[in-house]
Design a protein around this nucleic acid. Structure first.
Lengths: 328, 328
DNA sequence: CATAGTATG
DNA sequence: CATAGTATG
């Protein structure tokens, strides 16, 4: 059974396979505590090696770009795969609301059962929060924080097989839908590729139905780097989850139905623009990454888009957040 | 099938081995969030809260006490439940060999499959190492390091049911046996008390057979506080694993066969002498502990014993080491 | 490498 | 609270 939850609006303050097909990681040096060796005291090996600290003050979240019709943005949506909501909270990442001030924040991979959602993230001043959690505790899960109460909320994609996993939550507004999605990973050795392809089919159908009513803004972790330009090592990842032919073709087919990968639309030649870096092998400092997170919008909505900014300097997950600034 | 291994005796220091060169990043302050709450930097919740640092230089491992016959000790055995061999190694605990210099070191709860035993602990200059690991990876397991090659080694207690768990290893010398044991825990709500009582029966039989040949020195984690004096909170633990009537009676019955709890023999009235403290609730700094680790010797061997020292200031596990100094 | 979960003590 | 293991990405 699908677990979902509608958080309260606080009235006042309350308190891939992304596995690279490269060389195996070198074995870490181990302590030699042989009697004859000199003793060296080291700290526990626990705790993250990768930086989890974001210099929020120094990041420019403003958008000054105007829409094709010359209008300034007046609404923006931010999406972020948080890779574990509770850990993300402990790193202070909810500060994105304070600094970025999005109208809508979409998060994926909360990895948190609905009954374990911390109060601090369910009850947030100025936002209503909505959750679609997996039946499987610690796995997948999406959430959304909205300033304005939506007309309607849709949990899942009307799929018996997929809707137990907390992968999609949709909010409806007057002139558009926002679909927050965490697409199934194809797994190591592509073991869950069939599930992924089945998802693609059902998701496409779900979106088509929405799009027949009003424009759709899809955001989230699509778990695919569409073209070679969308990852650092295309040659060595042709069989990796996230860059298999099937997944890439899936994205092409999806876009063919009248949706636009807005980042690539705005920046067709932009290289080294990634939203995900494996935690291993110092990938992020070296920008060995993948563009897995997207805003896909209905073709007829493109003229409302001012900009799509990838905030690769925001830490706290193996993905970074990205924002869509629009004029509505 | 029982997994055991005989380590090599290192002839000299192996200078080609890896040194721990990894400098751990300083623990970064983490943010506690909530939009309206003031940012407060707190330590990461990761990493041990309890001290893992031992001031080896300031600990007196010497024994000057003489045996009842007025003879100075010339041999000593140290026992330590290490609570995870690999973590214990990383904390530099193998330094006990350097500072205490025991003739025999017995360790329990290695929690390490035989094929995962680090080379640094299998090959130690001046010692032969012997291992009896559980079939179940990460569970139980005992090891022993001896300066002098034993006449014989016995793995297990000749029990089909118990000998898959890596709970006992015995070394035979000219004039005594040393039995290194990790007695089964009775479990939360005493769920494994039947297994424990079965162990008691078979262990007793095993020891009787040894004792009929020559004196026995049993050491290790007996997983019982025998009398009220042997734990900080006897009143509130009458139904706890380690202080149930059955376990206490089991120890009484065992000793009745002609073995002596040497610490209690030497210090019959000594209070607050513990070898184990739960990691929770600041138990160790407050000395809210249990005496679970023992040296039990054959009655006729008591006159060879000089002292039994509990090294409660040695950190690195939830148990501390203790040493038996004898004259042989 | 890092987030979860569980088992065990 | 801390050691393990596994699943997942």
């Amino acid at each position: 059974m699908l677990k979902f939850s509608v958080g309260k609006t606080a009235k006042k303050a309350d308190s891939g396979n992304k596995e690279e097909t490269q060389v195996e990681e070198a074995k870490k040096p181990q302590t030699r505590t042989g009697l004859a060796t000199k003793r060296e005291f080291v700290q526990s090996t626990k705790g993250p090696k990768n930086s989890t600290v974001t210099n929020w003050e120094n990041i420019n979240f403003k958008c000054t770009t105007k829409s094709p019709k010359g209008k300034a943005p007046n609404f923006h949506i931010t999406t972020w795969n948080v890779d574990g909501l509770r850990s993300w909270l402990k790193k202070g990442c909810l500060d994105i609301l304070k600094y970025d001030k999005p109208d809508i924040l979409c998060i994926q991979e909360t990895k948190c059962a609905v009954y374990k959602l911390p109060e601090e993230v369910k009850t947030i001043e100025g936002y209503e929060t909505l959750w679609c959690c997996s039946d499987k505790d610690g796995y997948a899960g999406v959430g959304i924080m909205v300033k304005d109460k939506p007309l309607n909320v849709i949990y899942g994609i009307d799929s018996k097989e997929h809707d137990t996993e907390g992968r999609c939550i949709t909010v409806e507004y007057e002139t558009f839908f926002v679909v927050n999605v965490y697409v199934p990973h194809a797994g190591r050795n592509l073991v869950t590729l069939p599930k992924r392809l089945d998802w693609n089919e059902q998701f496409e159908k779900f979106i088509k139905n929405l799009d027949s009513q009003k424009p759709v803004i899809i955001c989230g972790d699509m778990n695919v780097a569409h073209k070679e330009i969308d990852l650092a090592n295309p040659k060595t990842n042709t069989n990796s989850a996230g860059f298999s032919v099937e997944e890439r073709d899936g994205m092409t087919a999806f876009l063919g139905n009248g949706y636009v990968d807005i980042y690539r639309h705005l920046y067709p030649e932009k290289e080294k623009a990634y939203t995900f870096w494996i935690y291993m092998r110092n990938a992020r400092p070296n920008n060995v990454g993948w563009r897995l997170d997207y805003f896909l919008v209905s073709q007829r909505f493109v003229d409302n888009v001012c900009d799509n900014i990838i905030h690769s300097d925001v830490m706290g997950s193996d993905h970074c957040p990205l924002s869509l600034h629009i004029q509505i």
